[in-house]
Structure formats: structure tokens, C-alpha cells
């Protein structure tokens, strides 16, 4: 399979849209937990993380709308694009499954987000730099909270170890997508918008592998598996997520809420 070549967005817009869609789609997934967590305390924690991500999505999509210059606001972007115009990492759209998979995913993703936000603090796009300054604190907390859980669950009981290892085995292949080289990334990096995501691979592994080891988990070997969410070619799961998320805006076009 070759890298899909979607409708070109300006590199800058593409870059911001990817950030925004990651936050949007994962925030949506996390919000599904509300009222169903293993303990009330985690209901509160997951709720906060989901709210952080939705907040990031709002800022980023508002910014993307301005860059696009067609008068679309956060909601038009969040609710009225077609599936192939979402640019989130496939990892973010995968179903929550159990608490173990949710925590492993959060840990893998938040660790990546931390690295991104750190670099984006120095973005030439001052709006993006400001968003990074706010979001990095949130991402650090998410990475800490989820990382602690990965250790608890990996090391805990035989059952929890097995479930957490299965979650890691399932999710790990999707992390390759984080670092796939893309032309728009290179262009955005050249323009000082932000790092090419491919540059972050070594730092990300250095951040996640020690925690996975502490959790007594086996880090899977890389396989030929590829996913393409950030290019607009998604898993089957995104369509269902969108049909639910977009329901109101699609059913009542143009209405104010």
C-alpha cells in the first residue's frame, strides 16, 4: 500500500486540523465513559480528561477555521465534515473496549501529545503556541494518570496483566502512524509551525518504553501493519463515531443550539 494522497490542504491548516481532530475524536471517545467507570473517582478523572480534550479541540478547530478562511467555526468543522476530511490518528477513533485499553491508549497518545506541545511552545504560529502553553499541562497530567494506571494494571493481577498486554498488543501497531513522514508535515516544519511528527519517534519511545517495562508488559515488535487516519483514510470505527456525534447537526441543518 502506498501513502494515500488526499485532497491537499495547505500544510499549516492540515497540521492544525490533525491536532484538533486528535483531541476531538479522543475527547468524544473518553466522554463515552461518563457514568460507566470502574469507580466513581475514575468517572471524575475521565470526565476531566475528556473536557480537557474537547477544550483543546475547540481552540484548535476554531484556529483551523480561521486558517481555512471560509468562515467555518469549530462546530461546522467538528460536525459537518465527511469522514475522509477528518485527520485524526486512527488510534484516537478506536473503541474504548475495557478500562485497560482506554488507559493504554491514553498513555500512548498523551505521551505523544506532551512531546508535540513541548515543541509547539516555540511555534511561529503564535496562536498555536498559546494553545500549546495551555494544553501541555493537561497532556502531562493525562500521561501521568494513564501511565500510573498502565503500571497498576500491568503489574496487578494475572487477569489485569493479560488484559493490559492484550490492549498493548492491539494498540501498538497503530502508533506507527504517529511517525509516518508526510509532505505537509515537512512543509509545516520548514515553516516553523511545528515539528514533523516523524522527528518525535525516539523521544516518544524513550518516554513510553520504561513505563511499559515497569508495568511488566512486553513491548510488541514492529510489524508491517499500517494505518492512515491522519491522511483521511480511517478504520471502520470512525464512521460510527461520527454518525453518533454528527446526529443533531445532520438532522437539523443550520439550527442554533
Amino acid at each position: 500500500m502506498t501513502t494515500p494522497n488526499p485532497a491537499p490542504l495547505a500544510a499549516h491548516l492540515e497540521y492544525v486540523t490533525r491536532l484538533g481532530d486528535n483531541a476531538l475524536i479522543l475527547g468524544q471517545r473518553m466522554s463515552e465513559w461518563c457514568g460507566h467507570a470502574p469507580v466513581l473517582e475514575e468517572d471524575m478523572a475521565l470526565g476531566n480528561m475528556s473536557l480537557d480534550l474537547i477544550g483543546q479541540a475547540r481552540m484548535l478547530l476554531t484556529h483551523a477555521g480561521k486558517l481555512e478562511g471560509q468562515g467555518r467555526d469549530e462546530d461546522q468543522l467538528a460536525f459537518l465534515r465527511t469522514e475522509m476530511n477528518y485527520r485524526n490518528l486512527t488510534l484516537c477513533e478506536l473503541p474504548n473496549a475495557d478500562f485497560g485499553r482506554t488507559m493504554v491508549r491514553n498513555f500512548l497518545f498523551a505521551s505523544f501529545q506532551v512531546l508535540l506541545w513541548e515543541r509547539l511552545l516555540a511555534s511561529h504560529d503564535s496562536e498555536l503556541a498559546a494553545i500549546a502553553a495551555k494544553s501541555i499541562k493537561e497532556a502531562r497530567y493525562h500521561a501521568q494518570h494513564a501511565g500510573d494506571w498502565v503500571v497498576r494494571l500491568g503489574d496487578g493481577t494475572a487477569e489485569s496483566h493479560e488484559r493490559t498486554q492484550a490492549a498493548l498488543d492491539y494498540l501498538w501497531p497503530y502508533t506507527a502512524e504517529f511517525f509516518v513522514v508526510t509532505p505537509s508535515d515537512e512543509a509545516a516544519a520548514a515553516a516553523g509551525i511545528g515539528p514533523a511528527w516523524s522527528e518525535l519517534e525516539a523521544a516518544w519511545e524513550a518516554a513510553v518504553v520504561p513505563v511499559l517495562n515497569e508495568a511488566t508488559l512486553t513491548v510488541p515488535a514492529r510489524t508491517p501493519f499500517k494505518s492512515w487516519g491522519k491522511f483521511g483514510r480511517h478504520s471502520e470505527h470512525l464512521g460510527h463515531l461520527l454518525s453518533e456525534m454528527q446526529y443533531m447537526q445532520r438532522t437539523y441543518p443550520g439550527a442554533q443550539w
Partner: peptide
């Protein structure tokens, strides 16, 4: 108060519950 299995999580959920 909160319920938590260890001190680390107790602090984290105390933050999530009592300082929103």
C-alpha cells in the same frame, strides 16, 4: 474524602474531585 488504592491515585483523584 476519596477512595483510592494508593497515595498517588488518592492525590490525583482528590484533584479531579475537589478542585474542578
Amino acid at each position: 474524602s476519596v477512595h483510592a488504592p494508593d497515595a498517588k491515585l488518592a492525590l490525583q483523584v482528590a484533584r479531579d474531585v475537589y478542585t474542578r
